[in-house]
Amino acid sequence: MENQNSNQRPPKTWLVESILVTLFCCLPFGIAGIINAAKVESRFYAGDIEGAQRASREAAKWTKIGFWVSVVLFVIYIVLLFAGVLTAVSLDELGS
């Protein structure tokens, strides 16, 4: 049972993407991705293909949430920044 699947590749673990999410954005989503990556591997080599595929989908979900949250936060930040800059500029003009 143990080595039944060792000549095949497990489903995508999203490990690389999860580590990137941990480093560049959102720790909780990255960690959730990494834990699911571990589940993909352990279930696959224990013969639980279906469970491994489920964990793979979970890992994909959390990394994608992490990615889009970072994009949204980034956009909100840029919008606030421009709003702030524009306010500062207009106040400056009023003052001069």
Binding site: L15, I34, A38, E41, Y45
Partner: peptide
């Protein structure tokens, strides 16, 4: 499996 398997992932965590 050695570099990116369960043990490796838990080690990274």
């Amino acid at each position: 499996r050695r570099l990116f398997g369960t043990k490796a992932i838990l080690f990274i965590l």
